[in-house]
Design a protein around this nucleic acid. Structure first.
Length: 604
RNA sequence: GGAGCCAUAGCUCAAUUGGUUAGAGCGCUGCCCUGUCACGGCAGAGGUUGCGGGUUCGAGCCCCGUUGGCUCCGCCA
């Protein structure tokens, strides 16, 4: 039931393990028949036959059927006991009568005839059922999370999480990594998210920041010569939530290595991921080395820097085919095309619905055509496609009879690419062509070092500013900044970004130059990252790392759609804790102590 | 900051086009039942339809606002 485990090694014969129990609720077998045992747990379910009463007793390990015969004076007490009350019982193990064994239960060949019981904790009628596990609104589940967590499915998820983290630790240690702890009360780090601030009592008007990641500390540990670092690290970012992104806080397997190139980090992570995903899943997994896909190629073929490689169709460019087109919506814009096989005979409503989805994603619409059996093209924009363009489209996309071609067009290349990337995911999900029993990994590499700031038109860091530019100082001095790539990479599994990482920039001169290109003088670097830049001036090893999201890895392995199903006490989308009532106003006394006055937003 | 979906009994849902006393299953309470394991049977309690306003002879249903939850954009690796 909950979590099967072998017979407990600490219990032998009749000797009682504790005041409360001699065995766990998954342990008893035919071999225990005639033993007197003591069990403790929750009343999971009851079946009252008027004469005999059956109780399913549940603990973390499993279920045992307790039999309460009618002649016992306390039978009616037990019969009226609320489900989820906690009891300890003493009784005798008996084999179940022939025909009434339960093969679904590890303990299904025996039952315990109770002789004494003790009520340890009475349960009132509950706001939600623990069993059966009825569908329950998520706010109710979160408010009564302690009940929700008793339910088999999520209880298993949390145990799985614990096992995965234990396995991560073991695997990292075996690869020669040392585990470290780094401060929680610290200063702002370079990730670029909003900080959580903690006011200082001792220093009026000053604040700590909670770490968005232990980024600078792990780099400092490399400068300190520790060579291989890891930490199951809590990270705090005051940003909004998504299904695969917790608001406020989450955990990373934070990793950093000295004297390494990108490939050595990849090898270590491929070893870890392959090990974890083989240990905790029977699904097929991409064999290492995982494919390396340059960022530019990912944006072209998948319209995303986190492609789901399980989807069997990819995007092509068609910009040149429409450059001079009479079709104004395409002419002169970036045009991308996505072929989807075998859907030409779908009803008009199917394509209309995709249009609506594209509009929700901010597009003007989603142009489409289908390939007819006679080789002709059909659909709203078919008349704009020249014979030459048609030949090219079919050749580039490999579209066959019965396929539909979807187009996105936008003056901004990235916008055109992303729309079709989003639609690729949406259409694949709608058509149910994504194999749920496979984990497809890849690396996205060669991220641009800088990107054009759409407001200022100038170069800005497109990622972590601590990454080493490919080509080093030479590239910074002699190359158009927007063409410089960074040693920056992401690892992606089934369309979920598990982590990004980088080879760090450990050379002060290159660091100052990179910041200069992004529009920051050396004084900014010295002020914001003085601790680290000073360290780099005292002999720093080349180093790099990565930080896979623990919650996301567990989510994939638990086959869950949201991260909240693998977190014991998650916040809601609005970053509220419905169980503990956080956040909450502070008292005037508390605020005075930390020298803070409240300035509420003005409502109009 | 923005968009969409949802909110009716403790839980899951129903309630015809806006029309009588808002129904059912599970759970709960009581009774019956000696082999069930989602036990079964009978009876009962349980509702300010999230909250506030409006339209209407009449609102669970229509309109406006608001709160909460979820999904997405922005944001975030």
């Amino acid at each position: 039931m909950l979590f099967t485990m072998g017979v407990c090694p600490f219990t032998v014969g009749l000797s009682l393990m504790s005041k409360y129990r001699s065995h766990r609720c998954n342990e008893l077998r035919k071999a225990n028949v005639d033993q007197e045992v003591r069990l403790a747990g929750w009343i999971h379910n009851k079946r009252d036959h008027g004469g005999v009463l059956f109780i399913d007793l549940r603990d973390h390990y499993g279920l045992t059927q307790i039999v309460v015969p009618p002649e016992l004076p306390f039978q009616s007490e037990l019969a009226h006991m609320t489900k989820e009350s906690v009891v300890s019982i003493v009784g005798t193990v008996k084999p179940r009568p022939e025909g009434s064994t339960n093969p679904n239960l590890p303990t299904g060949e025996i039952e315990v005839f109770v002789t004494q019981y003790e009520l340890l904790s009475k349960a009132e009628p509950l706001p939600m059922n623990v069993f059966p596990e009825d569908i329950t609104p998520e706010d109710t589940r979160l408010k009564y999370r302690f009940l929700d967590l008793r339910r088999s499915k999520i209880h298993k998820n949390i145990v799985l999480r614990s096992q995965i983290i234990a396995s991560m630790r073991r695997r990292m240690t075996e690869m020669g990594f040392n585990e470290f702890q780094t401060p929680i009360l610290t200063s702002s780090s370079p990730e670029g998210a909003r900080d959580f601030l903690v006011p200082s009592r001792l220093h009026p008007g000053e604040f700590y920041a909670l770490p968005q990641a232990p980024q600078q500390f792990k780099q400092l540990l490399m400068v300190s010569g520790f060579d291989r670092y890891f930490q199951i690290a809590p990270c705090f970012r005051d940003e909004d939530a998504r299904a695969d992104r917790s608001p406020g806080e989450f955990y990373q397997l934070d990793v950093e290595m000295s004297f390494v190139t990108q490939d050595e980090i990849f090898a270590a992570m491929e070893n870890l991921m392959t090990g974890l995903f083989t240990e905790f899943s029977t699904a097929q997994i991409t064999p290492a080395p995982f494919p390396r896909i340059p960022f530019a190629e990912a944006m072209l073929k998948y319209g995303s820097d986190k492609p789901d490689l399980r989807i069997p169709f990819t995007i092509s460019d068609a910009t040149d085919l429409f450059a001079q087109s009479e079709f104004k919506a395409f002419a002169g814009k970036t045009v991308r095309v996505l072929p989807v096989p075998d859907i030409a005979d779908k009803p008009r409503s199917f394509f209309d619905e995709l249009q609506e989805q594209a509009k929700l994603l901010g597009a003007v619409g989603l142009a489409w055509i289908t390939v007819q059996p006679d080789g002709s093209l059909k659909g709203p924009i078919a008349k704009f496609i020249t014979e030459e363009a048609k030949t090219q489209l079919l050749a580039r996309t490999g579209a066959k009879t019965g396929a539909a071609l979807f187009f996105s067009a936008d003056p901004v290349e990235l916008t055109a690419a992303k729309l079709l990337g989003d639609m690729r995911n949406y259409i694949a999900a709608k058509l149910d062509v994504i194999d749920p029993n496979v984990f497809k990994f890849c690396w996205i590499v060669d991220f641009p070092m800088f990107e054009k700031d759409l407001e200022t038109g100038k170069a800005a860091f497109s990622h972590n500013p601590f990454s080493m530019p490919q080509g080093g100082m030479d590239a910074l001095l002699n190359q158009d900044p927007l063409t410089i790539k960074a040693y920056q990479y992401d690892i992606v599994c089934n369309g979920i970004e598990l982590s990004s990482g980088a080879i760090r920039n450990h050379v002060p001169e290159i660091m100052y130059k990179a910041f200069e290109i992004a529009g920051y003088g050396p004084e900014v670097v010295d002020k914001k990252f003085g601790g680290m830049i000073n360290a780099f001036k005292c002999g720093a090893p080349p180093h790099g790392g990565i930080a896979p999201g623990v919650d996301r890895i567990v989510m994939l392995l638990a086959n869950e759609k949201t991260i909240r199903e693998v977190i014991a006490f998650p916040l809601t989308q609005n970053a509220r804790d419905l169980l503990m009532n956080a956040p909450a106003p502070a008292t005037e006394k508390q605020l005075r102590e930390v020298h803070v006055t409240i300035r509420k937003p003005i409502k109009i």
